[in-house]
């Protein structure tokens, strides 16, 4: 069946089977392969995207359920080749190694900081506990997110993406 929605500011229309997850639709129909699939059962968080501003696991959502929604993936967060302050903070703190969980970490942290630019370390840890990383041990990720808070305070919260 056909489904129409917006991805990273662009309107798209795709023909999908009802069983296709939003994650697979983004990756294989729309070729937005920045969204990763690590478990397909809603635990690892690598597939996290923003749907109407809220961070969701795209492996637990059907593509047909995105009808009319605004979807933002990791590719949609930074314009051109540059890094956003959050992405730059990840780089500075060495908050990624293999890079596989990174898109989910970035989208989740972006949603959190957009909603709660003053969150504390415990809140960051709680929110990121829904995203598995096997490389970093998380400490640098938490530091990177905390360090990026100032950039979100400056833009006065809200979901800019």
């Amino acid at each position: 069946m056909p489904v129409k929605f917006e991805v990273n500011g662009k309107r798209v229309e795709v023909e999908v089977e009802p069983r296709l997850t939003l994650a697979d639709c983004l990756r294989h129909k729309l070729r937005l392969t920045g969204t990763h699939v690590g478990c397909e059962h809603g635990v690892c968080g690598a597939c996290t995207v923003l749907v109407d501003g809220a961070a969701v696991r795209s492996c637990l959502m059907l593509a047909v359920q995105a009808e009319g929604a605004k979807v933002v993936t990791v590719e949609g967060l930074s314009r051109d080749e540059g890094l956003t302050p959050l992405q730059a903070s990840f780089r500075k703190h060495h908050a990624l190694q293999c890079g596989f969980c990174t898109p989910g970490m970035i989208t989740t942290a972006h949603a959190l900081l957009s909603e709660e630019p003053n969150c504390d370390a415990d809140r960051v840890r709680e929110v990121l506990s829904g995203n598995l990383c096997r490389c970093t041990g998380y400490i640098s990720i938490v530091e990177a997110v905390l360090d990026a808070r100032t950039a979100y305070r400056r833009r006065g919260g809200g979901n800019g993406a």
Partner: peptide, 26 residues
């Protein structure tokens, strides 16, 4: 019925639920 899908979709992924129709409540 498909509500939030946070339990049902994993059951589908493991193929322990095999409904012929999902009725989305959204």
């Amino acid at each position: 019925p498909l509500a939030g899908g946070q339990s049902l979709v994993p059951m589908l992924a493991f193929r322990v639920a095999l409904p012929s129709l999902l009725v989305d409540l959204r």
